[in-house]
Design a protein around this nucleic acid. Structure first.
Length: 463
RNA sequence: GGUCCCAUCGUCUAUCGGUUAGGACACAUGGUUUUCAUCCAUGAAAGAGGGGUUCGAUUCCCCUUGGGACCGCCA
């Protein structure tokens, strides 16, 4: 059995994380079933579709390593086929021209609103025998939706869904300017592309009932449908482009890595036993319709961060370093090549204090940046005694021929004894002097990661 | 308002009639540590309510409540 699916976003805004998850689910299933995964750009809304958004969508998928088969399929290039299908539906008696003006429709809507009854198009032109065709109006084409009976969809996620046909109005498939609407275009394209599985957000459920009628009217085989529950914002509503941290870029710019986001998204609305961490291969092997839940799930930033932390800690340091360099280049000041080696070596302790690439970057600023800024609060912690300790340290440190942790430990131990203090009494002023803040990596890690002259110069500045 | 849907810790979820209702994140406490972290240990934390069905319901059915989606010549 073949398995063809697609992700079909409209380029009318940046792709948000809900769309990304829909794409991921489609892609996973296609790869698991040795099927095809296509990307279709639904750009039939000429007013709002933008090339930039199309590129953003493509780049978002690329960033997540979701690859699609063939080139992206541009829906607007196929409009003539959509129109032809509409004409065929009219010819076969499954669709008709409607000459209601927009004013007339709006009037009806108003009327319904006043009476408190739901508006449904009154099917005025479905049977036009007593009507005069107005000369000055261009018609729309409406689909002759079934009036009686029920339509059933055996949804792969939601189970059997049943709706009374009377609740579906005669929806428009061709606008008065002869351009196709979503219902028509999507159906024709899915048929043309031989899509076997339509996997999309639950907000499309009603559309599937409409589209199923088009398939049947055209005598096309109806694909399988799977409506996955939506992702809600922290406020519990459907995610919208206005919600902050909802586009991929919002995550890239704080240093979330794609593997972590993929794993997070995978587990949002889907589960496999108690398993939390899935390699790419495991995701493909294990992902299935059965594990997809029915209720919407909320976005949880702390979990994304935690997942990212897990991946940062476990990932190959060379790969991590590469990502860090790219991150610095794109969102910060690029790490200077002369510092790259030092940062790379420091990665083994830096990564343990980080949830994001941004955290690593910030924690490595003491290496990257040549002039440290010390806050007044921290400066005030360096008193006379501390300065004396640091001076002593400099002297001992300068004499050191062999730099290693044991030697440093010895120096600091001696200083603690000599000045009758504790580790903090020595470590804190050193840390402030070397990295500009009292929080940071272990003091030995700091000292050993910097070269000798840097250590001495920085410390001399505060004594 | 109409149609459809959903309902287990704060969050993501496990359980497919019999469990001390499990895990993860977050949270709290304690320990390790050299600060912040990490790490380790421990803890608190859930079946919305009411009816059935059944020897037995979180699980099956109904109602209520709560939440959501859709109701465009947008997609």
């Amino acid at each position: 059995m073949s398995f063809n699916c697609r992700f079909a976003p409209s380029p009318t805004g940046p792709l948000h994380i809900g769309g990304v998850r829909t794409a991921l689910f489609n892609w996973l299933l296609a790869r698991k079933n040795n099927g095809k995964f296509f990307l279709r750009i639904e750009d039939t809304d000429k007013e709002r579709s933008k090339e930039d958004f199309k590129l953003q969508i493509i780049n978002s998928l690329k960033w997540l390593n979701i690859d699609y088969d063939g080139n992206e399929y541009i829906q607007s290039k196929n409009i003539s086929k959509h129109v032809a299908a509409a004409e065929e539906l009219v010819k076969k008696g499954f669709a008709y021209k409607c000459y209601c003006s927009e004013d007339e429709i709006n009037e009806q809507k108003e009327k319904c609103k006043k009476q408190g009854i739901p508006y449904v198009y009154n099917r005025k032109w479905r049977d036009p025998k007593d009507l005069k065709i107005p000369k000055d109006l261009k018609p729309v084409i409406r689909f002759k939706s079934k009036i009686s009976g029920n339509t059933i969809i055996k949804d792969l996620v939601q189970g059997e869904r049943n709706i009374s046909n009377s609740t579906i109005e005669d929806f428009i498939i061709l606008r008065k300017d002869m351009t196709p609407t979503y219902q028509l275009s999507a159906t024709v394209d899915d048929h043309e592309m031989k899509i076997t599985h339509v996997i999309r957000g639950d907000d499309h459920m009603i559309n599937s009932f409409k589209q199923k009628q088009i398939y049947e009217a055209m005598k096309w085989s109806v694909p399988n449908f799977a409506h996955i529950p939506l992702i809600h914002s922290e406020k519990g509503k459907k995610l919208s482009k206005r919600d902050n941290a909802s586009t991929i870029n919002d995550y890239i710019k704080i240093g979330i890595i794609p593997e972590a986001l993929r794993n997070y998204l995978l587990r949002l609305g889907w589960s496999y036993k108690d398993k939390e961490i899935f390699s790419l291969k495991e995701s493909i092997d294990l992902f299935n319709f059965e594990g997809i839940g029915k209720s919407p799930s909320k976005l949880d930033m702390s979990r994304i961060l935690s997942m990212n932390e897990t991946y940062i800690k476990s990932m190959n340091e060379k790969d991590l370093f590469k990502k860090l360099i790219e991150f610095s280049q794109e969102f910060k000041t690029k790490i200077d090549e002369s510092k790259e080696n030092i940062v790379f070596k420091a990665l083994n302790f830096l990564k343990n204090k980080a949830k994001t690439l941004e955290d690593i970057y910030n924690n490595s600023l003491y290496i990257i940046s040549d002039n440290l800024k010390i806050s007044n609060d921290d400066k005030s912690l360096i008193d006379k005694k501390s300065q004396e300790i640091i001076s002593n340290f400099i002297t001992d440190y300068e004499k050191l021929s062999d730099l290693n942790k044991e030697n440093l430990e010895q120096i600091i131990k001696n200083l603690i004894n000599k000045h009758k203090t504790n580790f903090k009494g020595v470590g804190q002023p050193l840390r402030i002097g070397l990295i500009g803040t009292k929080f940071g990596p272990g003091i030995y890690d700091i000292i050993l990661s910097l070269n000798k002259t840097t250590v001495i110069n920085r410390l001399k500045k505060i004594v």
